[in-house]
Amino acid sequence: MIWLRKTALVLHLLRGLLTCALLFPWLGVRSRAWHIRRWSRRLLRICGVEVEVVDATGAPHTGAARQGAMVVSNHISWLDIYVIHSWQPVRFVAKSEIRSWPLIGWLCDKTGTIFIERARKRDAHRVLHDITDVMLQGDLVGVFPEGTTTDGTSVLPFHANLMQAPISGGLPVQPVALSYLDKATRQLSIDPAYIGDLTLLQSLNAVLKAAPITARLVIAPPLEAVTSNRRELAEEARQAVAKHVHGARQHAGTVPSNIPPVEPVGTRQTTT
């Protein structure tokens, strides 16, 4: 069974590569976003992951994301990117080494990833300008300010460097909180956690062997960058994320009856 799902993943990856190569050069921004969202949802479904998106009160979140903002989240797994993409495609900031990864690096590049050479201080300044510019143009930029992954039971301090971009542009920060739950019991699941010495293949195997998982994404109220202190903004964002990660833990034993999963991947978005 696991080999069938791995085969499906490989075929799905190839489909993504063909879509980027053959369709993306001819598509507009909204059409690209629709394809990214649909591809991400199908990947999660192959992995046995269902996504539910709620607001800060726990009610289903149905509104569109605010454009021209920095999306910040806690970081647990390689799945995080696709969970967020299934809600709203964003342009993630990633280390430059990923660009050289076979196939995956090319796919990330074509879906708008902003790469940063972390060993070069000058590159951080370039990336800050790039992030500010694309947000001012209406794009969402996604970052994982913890700088590493955790098992999802806590939120590490947020690095503040990239927080200068929303401050410079006078743009909001959108905190989102991620939790992975056992779909049946609603208890926290650490199966998706990509931590320690795990290889990507080992992490993938753990996800594919796990019981069905619910990825719970909480969309917290946006933060206005009214402070000029990026560390203060980073801490405010961390507290917002941590509050809702801890809230997921407190309510993990309760199965909500009114939260539908993310719409089926075959449903085309009709808004313009």
Rank of each mutant, 00 (worst) to 15 (best):
R120T: 01
I259A: 04
S179T: 15
H85P: 00
S96F: 01
L23E: 14
G112T: 09
D139K: 02
V49L: 14
L188D: 04
Q88Y: 06
R120K: 15
M70W: 04
V218S: 04
I114E: 01
H85C: 07
R118T: 08
P212Y: 08
L128K: 12
G253F: 07
V262S: 07
Q202W: 02
V93K: 05
P212S: 10
P102H: 09
P166L: 03
Q174S: 07
R5A: 10
P212K: 12
K6L: 15
R45C: 06
I131G: 02
A252V: 01
Q187D: 12
G152D: 02
E117T: 10
P89H: 12
C47T: 01
P145R: 11
V207I: 15
G253L: 15
Q137F: 00
G169D: 13
A184I: 02
D80H: 02
T7C: 13
V51C: 09
T19S: 09
K209P: 00
L44Y: 01
Q137E: 15
L13K: 03
S203W: 09
Q187P: 01
L200H: 07
R230E: 08
G105M: 05
L217V: 13
W101G: 12
A65L: 13
A165I: 13
Y194S: 00
R91H: 08
T185W: 10
T111C: 11
T199A: 06
I98A: 13
A21M: 10
E146F: 00
E97V: 05
T7V: 13
A193W: 02
I116S: 05
H159E: 10
G105D: 05
H61C: 12
R230V: 12
I36A: 02
G48I: 04
A59K: 13
K243D: 09
I219D: 01
A177D: 04
G138P: 05
V51N: 06
R216V: 14
S31L: 14
G147R: 03
L201P: 00
D191Y: 02
Y82V: 05
G112I: 05
M135K: 05
M163E: 03
R42Q: 15
P256I: 03
I116K: 04
S154W: 11
G247S: 10
W3H: 12
R186P: 00
E236K: 11
A248Q: 14
T19F: 06
S40D: 07
R30E: 14
G16T: 05
A234I: 06
P260Y: 08
P145H: 10
D123H: 15
P166E: 04
M135W: 07
A242T: 06
L171S: 06
V71K: 03
R122W: 08
R66T: 14
P25G: 06
A215C: 13
V245G: 01
V90Y: 02
L27S: 08
D55S: 09
D151A: 11
D130S: 13
P157Q: 11
A211Y: 00
V155C: 12
A124D: 02
Q164V: 07
V54P: 01
K209S: 14
E236R: 14
Q239F: 06
A237T: 07
L188S: 11
R231P: 04
M70G: 07
G16N: 08
E117F: 00
R99Q: 15
M70R: 05
I104K: 03
A193L: 03
G247F: 07
C20Q: 02
V10P: 11
G152T: 03
W106Y: 12
Y82S: 11
A65G: 10
Y82T: 09
P157R: 09
W101T: 11
D151N: 14
L201G: 02
G105N: 03
